Computed example of a mutant assay.
Amino acid sequence: MADPDLVTDRLRLRRRLLFWRAAAVGAFVLAWLGIGGHMLVHHGALVGRDHLVRVRVAGIIGSDNRKLIDLIDAAAKAKAIRGMVLSVDSPGGSVSGGEALHDAVARFAARKPVVVTMGGVAASAGYMISVPAQRIFAGQSTLTGSIGVIMQAPDVSGLLDRVGVRVDELVSGPMKGQPSVVQPLSPEGRQMLQGVVADLFDQFVTMVADGRHMPVDRVRSLADGRPYTGRQALPLGLVDQIGTERDAVAWLKRKEHLSDTTPVVDLKVARSRSWIPRLTRSMLGVILGEEWVGSVVSQGVALDGALAIWKP
Score class of each variant (00 low, 15 high):
residue 150 I to A: 13
residue 175 M to R: 07
residue 307 L to T: 10
residue 190 R to T: 09
residue 282 S to E: 12
residue 150 I to N: 14
residue 6 L to H: 06
residue 151 M to L: 14
residue 299 Q to K: 14
residue 104 A to P: 04
residue 87 S to V: 09
residue 213 H to R: 15
residue 115 V to W: 04
residue 236 L to Y: 06
residue 174 P to F: 09
residue 30 L to H: 02
residue 287 I to A: 15
residue 66 R to W: 01
residue 248 A to M: 06
residue 145 G to R: 09
residue 160 L to Y: 12
residue 266 D to S: 14
residue 62 G to Y: 08
residue 20 W to N: 05
residue 79 K to W: 00
residue 270 A to L: 10
residue 312 P to H: 10
residue 116 V to Y: 02
residue 258 L to T: 11
residue 26 G to Q: 03
residue 287 I to L: 15
residue 178 Q to D: 04
residue 188 E to Q: 15
residue 167 V to N: 05
residue 78 A to K: 14
residue 6 L to W: 04
residue 52 L to V: 07
residue 273 R to V: 05
residue 89 D to K: 07
residue 228 Y to S: 04
residue 130 S to H: 05
residue 270 A to H: 11
residue 75 A to G: 05
residue 259 S to W: 00
residue 197 V to Q: 10
residue 106 A to P: 00
residue 299 Q to A: 11
residue 138 A to N: 02
residue 268 K to A: 15
residue 95 V to G: 00
residue 243 G to K: 01
residue 36 G to Y: 13
residue 110 A to F: 02
residue 113 P to R: 11
residue 149 V to N: 04
residue 259 S to Y: 03
residue 252 L to I: 08
residue 99 E to Q: 11
residue 19 F to S: 05
residue 287 I to F: 13
residue 6 L to R: 14
residue 175 M to E: 08
residue 34 G to E: 08
residue 199 D to L: 12
residue 196 V to F: 12
residue 307 L to D: 02
residue 223 A to H: 03
residue 54 R to H: 08
residue 19 F to R: 12
residue 226 R to M: 05
residue 246 R to C: 00
residue 137 F to K: 04
residue 150 I to D: 13
residue 61 I to G: 03
residue 57 V to R: 10
